[in-house]
Every structure is written in structure tokens, then in C-alpha cells.
Amino acid sequence: MNLSYRIFYVLVRNIISYKRFILPTFAVSLGQPLFYLVTFGIGMGAYMGYVGGKPYLNFLVPGVLISSVMLSSTFECLYDTFVKMVHERLYDSLIATPVSAEDVVAGDIAWGAFRGLLSGVLMLVVALFMGVHPASVASALLIVAIMAFVGVLFSSLAMIVTSFAPNFDFFNYYTELIITPMLFFSGVFFPLDKFPQWLKVFALFLPLTHAVNISRAVFSGEAVPGLWWSLLILVVMEAAAFVIGIRLMKRRLIT
């Protein structure tokens, strides 16, 4: 892995470029998760009542925070990366400088994570307005760290998909068949304990399950079962996705 501090330069490039698009993208990244918070949280919450002894909204928020990170990071490293790579040939110009292909991809993963983090923090602010807040300042800070970490994971996974994508349509397979279903099988909206055993086992293979598990524990400041396992699995998945994503993208960039 030919990585260097120049990852940071790629990140800076994206931040400068982002200035112009900041308001429209805020609207987009807020849209879907906000819609979940309102419909599920308020609409369905009225029927759900309490989950684990707390109002349903308190159950829902940590999951939606992480989901918004997942969605933003994923879309950034699918569509935006694809445009930069294929349409604008931006990557070609970057790798003609001392910035290596690995730096470029890692820089864009960092950027995807940053975008995810922004969405997550925005959702956290919305949640505060809805009267739901983390257990302490420490848990709020920890939540932010976890959002960044989860952002890197989903950015890296998206990079793997982008490295194969012949065109935009290809991304539909990933978003419609993997990302959207994952939202419903990872315990974001309801606890998984009523699922049949095989579905519970299936859910253990989904990174979002573990991310939500950790997020919920940190948000409430109360331990949940399997917390350390979730963390370990997430770290392993993230390391693998990061390395594989960069390798595959490099194969596409350097011919």
C-alpha cells in the first residue's frame, strides 16, 4: 500500500470543491433519514410505545444516525467518485502528480466518511430538537467518533462496488439489493429478537447490525449484549474493505 500524508491533500480538494454544493447536499442528506425519524419515530412510535423501557424514539435515533452516515458515505463513494473517475477524469490528473493512486482512493474514502459524519451530526441536531439526546457529553463525542469510523467502512465498501461499475445503473443493484434491505434487517427500526433464528444469524453478517448495536450502547450509555464482538467484527470488516477497495480501485486507475 503506497499511502502517504497526501491523502489529506485529496480531502482538502474535496472540501474546497464542496463549498458550492453544500446547501443542496445538506437537503439531500437530511431528507431520507429525517423522513424515517418523522414517520417511524412519531407516526409509528405512537403505536410502539416503549422499547426496552424507553420511548421508541430513543430506540430509533441511534439507529437512524448511523443509517444516515451509511447512506451519505455510500452515495458519495458510488456516484461522486464515479463522476470524478470516469466523467471528469479527475483521478487521472491527480495520479500524474506525486499523489499515488492509493492516496487518491484513500482520500476519497476519507471524504466519504466526512460527508457521512456531516449527515450524522445534522441528524443528531435534529434529534436534539425532538428531545432525544445522548446520555452524556462523553457519549455524544463517542457517537461522533463512531460515525466517522462507520463512514470509513461504508465508503470503503462503496469503493469496491465503484471499482467494478461499468455505469451509473450498476449502482442500483448495490443500493436497492444491499443497502436498502440492510436498513430493515439490522435492527434500526425495531429490535431483532422477534426474528426467527436464521434471520438473526443472517443479520450478524450485516455491518450495519453491528454499527447500530454499538451506536445504541454508546448513545444510551448502557451496555448491550455482544458489544465487544460487534466492535471487533466491525474493525475486521473495515480493515478488509479498506484494503480491498483501494486495491480494486487501483487496478482500475493504473493500467
Partner: peptide, 10 residues
């Protein structure tokens, strides 16, 4: 370069 690959975001 042969192709114009300027950064259109900037």
C-alpha cells in the same frame, strides 16, 4: 494531457 481533465468543481 490529451484529454481535458481540469477539476470542474473548482
Amino acid at each position: 494531457p490529451q484529454e481535458i481533465n481540469l477539476d470542474s468543481g473548482l
